[in-house]
Amino acid sequence: MLRVGLCVLVLALGACNKSDAGANHELAQTMLRERGAPDFADASTDAFAAIRHEPSGMVCVLPPNGAFAFDVFPANAQNAGAQCSSTQDGVAVGWVAVRFSTPTTLDAVFSASVAQLAAGLEPEAWPGQVSAADLQSPQGLVHYRIQRLQAPVGGEMQFLRVAVAERDGWYLQQIVSAPIASAQEAETAAGEIWRQGLARFSAPNVSDAAAAG
């Protein structure tokens, strides 16, 4: 039910995440024009280039190098949503925002996400140290669930992580995979990125606030 493709648009990026607001905005806006994906808008800052899925509040930060992909779900999809992903130094990070047509719960979505991530594998609990960022209290009013696993993928052990949060009927998912040798570094970075993603996800939507005003 939650399976989506994360390889719709792949760009080699070498000019983003610079401390140059103009360049960051230009990169994001050029990408949006060329891709023509609806529901996304420029969310860049002085520090990084980014795009925001306006209906859900999911913000996708472009990596300083590596591959980046994004898209919205097809108009005829059962559920509304969008996705983005990046790959850098062997670490893949995917973000998915979904609004389900049938009422569900955070625990149900989380269980389905973990099952999908582990499908066809023989996973076991990852024995490493949970990131310091994840040990903090939930961000604002947004609650979340996180699972960390390790499993052989293509003959090599991989670190796997899935995190899910809910706000106003939207479910935000973070999916991470990394070589087991870099698992601790990937977990630390993923925890920090997750906290940042939660803060942006829980922030009021500018367009919604303007409409309410």
Rank of each mutant, 00 (worst) to 15 (best):
R33V: 01
P63H: 04
A43T: 00
D71K: 02
N76L: 09
N24V: 00
V142I: 09
L13A: 07
V142L: 15
S44Y: 01
G14T: 06
D46W: 05
S111R: 14
E34P: 03
A125S: 10
S131D: 13
L117Q: 10
V114M: 08
N79M: 08
V130T: 15
R145K: 15
E34C: 08
A92P: 01
T102E: 15
A77F: 03
A43N: 07
V109P: 00
V91K: 12
G81S: 11
P138S: 10
G66M: 06
F68W: 05
G66F: 01
A133E: 09
V96N: 11
A112S: 15
S44H: 03
G128N: 05
A108L: 09
L121S: 12
L6D: 06
G57V: 03
S85L: 05
G81H: 00
E54Q: 13
V59R: 14
T30R: 14
R99I: 02
G5C: 03
D46A: 11
N79G: 08
Y144P: 01
A37P: 01
Q129R: 12
M58E: 07
V98N: 09
A21T: 05
A119K: 12
C16V: 13
T102H: 11
A115E: 13
N79A: 12
N24K: 01
S19V: 05
L117W: 00
P74C: 07
E124C: 01
V142M: 12
G128L: 05
G5N: 04
A47L: 09
W126R: 09
P74D: 10
C84I: 01
W126G: 07
